[in-house]
Each structure stands twice: as structure tokens, then as C-alpha cells.
Design a protein around this nucleic acid. Structure first.
Lengths: 205, 205
DNA sequence: TGGTGTGAACCGATTCACAGCA
DNA sequence: TGCTGTGAATCGGTTCACACCA
């Protein structure tokens, strides 16, 4: 059986969001080229991606917004809800807690951790902040799958170790240094300064 | 003449940072495989990347830390300093202003803009906050090249338009919706919820 | 021997070109 | 006709295999 490519998954997530917005606007049909414009891709790419999930479109017409969204969601998200644990409630952590893209029923920030005594047990945007000491126990209890590192780089490895011990299988790391984890844990680094330089190089061509 | 690949540029930035750290620890030699471990790549990949910049290594020995760093920096950054303008000084904006990865002499946050009157003219981490009305004029004056969108999605397009008018050639967009800009302006979207889902899908395989 | 440098093979992803259909 | 669907060609990037050298 053919396996889905990671890039197709990423774009499918963009398609899903675009389709949600279109549904809100009562658009019930959409063509591959329009979807491509919205998501910054090409029409062929959109059709190739969608073709992986089956023959969903109607020749001469396009795709039915609702149907396409359902097909993609069923395949990619399989009515899973992703449970997230956040470490570090500084400015970045707070920004993440308030991030509007998370106000969906598919992602749930289940717990936040900080070691500052004065932040602990407060709530930000409905998410309670716990002391780090309780993190391993709590993460296991709520069955979180993904962890976010939003602590200063000095503490990032320490937090990564806690995440591994808690059984988290995926980590987003915002600290500007790499953390080491077992091979079965997937880490995605988001490094603002690398992103900036990368864009700068792009503009220099 | 052969042209450098974008992926090589991105990795070169990681190499440069790794080399800086090694220099601080007085390590004057480094092998491709060790550099690969630090940056999360493979030894062949490291050598291929570096080979683009010339024959820098010493067979049987490895690379001279300082020399390699200089070669990469000269090629990639060409003693340019990247000047950045930030829009939106909420939690995310503040996190960016305080980001330690920017405490380098190669990136300079030159101005921040916000429309909240009570934030204006304050300073965060040495960067002054100006009212948005002055942004076009100020960005031209300080010759910023890259802009960061850290405002709520409702205002992201408006801010993108300002950036285009100010002559910025690259944009990092943290708002969870795409902005439209002329083809000659390069936009990189950083979308937390897509990143989360993407990692989640990875862990599901 | 233990490292670098690199052409060739490979692999994944994108684009092309066009068949097929309401 | 104007869209989707898709095999074939192409492109870019990674890995292999090995020549080379202090």
C-alpha cells in the first residue's frame, strides 16, 4: 500500500483550514486552483495531494467544500484530539496559550508548567499552570502527546528529559539550541534567528 | 556557475552557530561527523554542504573551527547585518524582542511598532516602540530589510501592506492566516497549530 | 589509518502533458 | 468546454561508494 508523504500531510492541514474558512463563508464548491491560491501552492499540487485520499472531485465543477474537508480530516486527524503540554509561561508561553489557531476542537492545551512560584496555579486562557515537579505525573494522567519547550535555553535539555520521561512522543522546541532525545521521539526546532537569516538569504538572490 | 541550494543555506546557518559555540569552548578542530551530530544532520551531508564553499577541510584531521566559520560567514552573510522591523508588541512580540538568539551582531531589531498608545515610546530590551503611523517613514529611514508580523490575524494583511509600502523584501508571518503580497516579496508563515499537527502526524506513523 | 571531497546512484517531490468526464 | 485525475518526465536533494591525502 502506498504511504502518504509528510509534505502532503502538512499541506493537507492548510487545505483543511482553508476549507473551514470557506465553509464559514457558505462557499460550497471550490476548485483546485483557487485552493492553491489560498494556501500558496499550485493547482496540480493540490490535485495530486487530494488524489491520495481518493476521487473526491467532480470534473468540470471542482470539489464540494464540506465533503473535501471531511475526507481530509478523517484521513489526517481521524477524530483524534491532540493534547499538548506547555513548559514555560513567559512571554512566548503566554503567546502560545493565547494563540487563536489553537481555538479549535482538534488541539487541546491540557497543561502548562512553570517553576516560578508566583505563576503557579493561575490560569491563562483557561489553562492552569502547574509547578514543574508535578509534570511527569500530570502529563501521564492527561495523556498528552506533544510537548512545547518555551523555557530559556539553559533549561531546555532538562525540560526535554522530563518530556521523554513523561512519555511524550513529539516536541516543539523554541529554545535556540538543540536538545538530545531518544530516536523514537521526534523534535521540531523552531529557531527565530535561523528563520530570519533564511528569509534574508532568500531576498538576496 | 553553480548556485547554492536553499537547504544548504539553512544548514550553513546551523553550522555557523555550532562553530561559534565550539569556539567559545576553545575547540579549534572539528570533524564533519561531530558537526553533523550537533546540528542533527549526517556527516556526508555536512561535507557536501561545505564542499560548495571550497576545499576547507584537512584530510585525516577535520576542519579548523575558526577557518570554517569564517568561510561560511563570508559566503552566507557577507558581513551584512540584517535589520528587522517588528509589528505588534503583545506577548509574542515581547518574546521576539527578548529572544536570546538575536543577541548577535548579525541581526539587529531596529524598530518595533504597536498601535496601543500606552506601549508606544517605551523600550523593550533596548528597542523602542513607535506608533504604527510612523512605520513607513521609519522603516525607510533605518533601511530595514525584514519585517515580522506579530499582530492578531485581523490586522495581519493591513500590516503586510505597510511592510510592502515600506520596501521590506522579506516577511515572517506569525498570524495564522496567509497575507497577500507582490511576488517579489518573500513571506514565510510560521503557524503554531500546523507545526503541532505536523509533529503529531509524524508520531503516528 | 581516519579523516575530507565528490561523481554516480538513488529517492522523493514537483511539474508536465494529456486522458477522461459532467 | 473547464474542470479533475494521473502516468511520465523532470528536478532537487540525499546517500552511496570510493578516490585521495596528512
Amino acid at each position: 500500500m502506498k504511504t502518504i508523504s509528510p509534505k502532503t500531510i502538512d499541506r493537507a492541514l492548510l487545505y483543511i483550514r482553508a476549507l473551514e474558512n470557506l465553509l464559514k463563508k457558505k462557499r460550497d464548491k471550490i476548485s483546485s486552483s483557487e485552493l492553491a491560491d489560498i494556501t500558496g501552492s499550485s493547482d496540480v499540487q493540490v490535485r495530486k495531494d487530494i488524489s491520495f485520499f481518493g476521487k473526491v472531485g467532480i470534473p468540470r465543477i471542482g470539489y464540494e467544500t464540506k465533503k473535501l474537508k471531511d475526507v481530509l480530516e478523517n484521513f489526517i486527524l481521524q477524530d483524534n484530539i491532540v493534547h499538548i503540554a506547555l513548559f514555560g509561561v513567559g512571554n512566548l508561553g503566554k503567546a502560545i496559550l493565547k494563540y487563536p489557531g489553537f481555538q479549535t476542537d482538534k488541539i487541546k492545551l491540557v497543561a502548562a508548567f512553570d517553576k516560578a512560584k508566583n505563576k503557579v496555579l493561575k490560569e491563562v486562557n483557561g489553562v492552569k499552570i502547574y509547578p514543574v515537579e508535578q509534570s511527569v505525573r500530570l502529563i501521564k494522567k492527561v495523556h498528552a502527546e506533544i510537548g512545547i519547550i518555551a523555557v530559556p535555553s539553559e533549561n531546555s535539555q532538562e525540560v526535554a528529559d522530563i518530556m521523554v520521561n513523561s512519555g511524550l512522543k513529539g516536541i516543539v522546541n523554541f529554545a535556540p539550541n538543540r536538545v538530545s532525545v531518544p530516536k523514537n521521539v521526534y523534535v521540531k526546532d523552531i529557531d527565530f534567528s535561523i528563520e530570519i537569516f533564511s528569509i534574508f538569504s532568500h531576498t538576496q538572490l
